[in-house]
Design a protein around this nucleic acid. Structure first.
Length: 272
DNA sequence: AGTGCGGCCTGTCCGC
DNA sequence: TGCGGACAGGCCGCAC
């Protein structure tokens, strides 16, 4: 389940194979992703890949001279890998970006919650991107910002930090982790978290995401990077999927509770 | 405006 | 052993 660290890991994995290469074909085997893959993606054919970057959990592959590029979201079960273009596709290998060196970037997504689309410059004007909040690892993301935006909000702080309009890239795993690190109960109303504790939460979010990126992401079940390597952050998780196990801080059993339709893990003693 | 929830998907796991 | 159902979850879009 790719969250920001897994998407960043994917970007770092595919970028060296893509940048500067010319796209010779886009092969769409199954266009029925979250939204139909549009024919416009073929605008990349015959052009070179330029700037490769990430915005939130979206991968943006700029295409030289096309005033736009390819937008990819891995959804819940998507992955990209680099492989020979003539390698036989596996089940759920829906799209290939074929490159002029004989390799391709292959998009695989069993659950098809992913997105493969074309964007026009500037990418941030794309309907999927134009409402997004700040990047958690940018200087715009601060405790003061969280405190300001949360004013009057009565929903759970966990849902608040998972809201892409507030801050992007904080998914279910890292939300639980950051709230544990900051000692904040996931169910606490967002508007009732103090400025000091939002400073701590901001720091925890930055810290957990940065460490997870360094470990190549979190492999819980099936995440593999483009070179087929798992991420090594799972062994550093403090709360997520530790229901019933002792809290590392106070040994109280970690509890699981569904908040906003998602499993949340927290220490009922340390997190208030 | 903020909040909550349905829906999209398939692989995996659990209980009968 | 087989089978149905719950569950996993990012994020849009809708209803209140």
């Amino acid at each position: 389940m790719p969250e920001l660290p897994e998407v960043e890991t994917t970007l770092r994995g595919v970028s060296p194979s893509m940048a500067g290469r010319t796209v010779t074909d886009i092969v769409v085997r199954n266009a029925a992703l979250r939204w139909p893959v549009p024919g416009e993606v073929r605008r990349a054919v015959g052009r070179a890949v330029g700037d490769c970057r990430r915005r939130a959990k979206y991968l943006l592959f700029g295409i030289g001279g096309a005033d736009g590029g390819l937008l990819v979201h891995l959804g819940m079960s998507g992955s990209l890998r680099v492989c020979p273009a003539d390698a036989p596709p596996r089940k759920h290998d829906h799209v290939d970006i074929v490159l002029d060196d004989g390799n391709c970037i292959r998009f695989h997504d069993p659950r098809r919650f992913g997105v493969f689309d074309w964007y026009e410059d500037p990418a941030d004007a794309h309907p999927l991107l134009n409402h997004l909040g700040p990047e958690p690892l940018s200087t715009a993301f601060t405790g003061t910002y969280l405190k300001t935006v949360s004013a009057g909000r009565r929903g759970a702080v966990k849902n608040f930090i998972m809201d892409g309009k507030v801050v992007v890239g904080v998914g279910n795993i890292y939300a639980s982790e950051a709230l544990f690190m900051a000692g904040i109960h996931p169910n606490r109303p967002a508007g009732r978290v103090s400025a000091e504790r939002y400073d701590a939460l901001c720091q925890a979010i930055r810290d957990v995401l940065a460490r997870a990126i360094r470990r190549g992401g979190t492999t819980l079940r099936d995440f593999l990077d483009p070179g087929n390597n798992p991420g090594y952050f799972a062994q550093e998780l403090l709360a997520y999927e530790r229901e019933g196990l002792p809290c590392f801080r106070c040994e109280t059993p970690i509890r699981r509770k569904v908040i906003g339709q998602r499993s949340s893990y927290y220490c009922p003693s340390c997190q208030r």
